[in-house]
Design a protein around this nucleic acid. Sequence first.
DNA 1: ATGGTTGCAAGGCAA
Length: 268
Amino acid sequence: MSSLRIVTWNINSVRLRLPLLTGLIEALRPDVLCLQETKCPDELFPHEGLSALGFEHRAARGMKGYNGVAILSRVPFRVRGDDPDWCARGDCRHIGVDLDVPGGLELHDFYVPAGGDIPDRETNAKFAHKLDFIAEATAWNRARGPVKRSVLVGDLNVAPLEQDVWSHKQLLDVVSHTPVEVAALNGWQQAGGWYDALRHFVPPTEKLYTWWSYRARDWEASNRGRRLDHVWVSQDLAGQLRSFEVHKPARSWIQTSDHVPVMVEVSL
DNA sequence: ATGGTTGCAAGGCAA
């Protein structure tokens, strides 16, 4: 294998949308598929269906009704198991694995708290949780030193750049694009020495979205999107980036997620 | 204008 295709998708219920993965696999041909918001306890995780789709290696960390992440892979991996219990909540927002590829590759799948509606940590505990989570992740990366041969993906629930949202001005006070969240996310990225793989391919002057609300009458016509889903790579992999795709057609699939899958291909 | 939709799981919470 000369390259690895990694896909990340906030699937918003892995059991409900398992049938959609056939189309995702045809379109993006992932070697590794990272999911968020699986909303599925581990004992009910659809291992059989995912095995049938060719993902022989699977790790899931889920709970009843909310959150949940999973890594599904055609190549073997080992669950690292050295990750913290983020914010001491046991709420299933991260898995880290070591992929068994030439040279090795560390992969982290994150689901950052959405943060509720009011961007104020004093009056909104969910916003405080979001900021605390990112602060812990920043400290975690800082303590580990600059990352090497590593990839971090997931729904980070922050759209950091002006062109990551449909209207920078109108979203400045909307959770996901507030200056305090953007500063926190940038601090996390810098603490690990992470490199933004999607903006490697799409200049920061161009709009780029991975999420469109369910609440729009016509999501495509209004196009009020945000880039909430991210792929970060260590600096030593920046030159190894080969291709990417934000699979916008997935937003039109029947009974789909409000997020679309994102693929990045890395040379090994 | 303070909505609008979705999933889980069986009423309201979270997104």
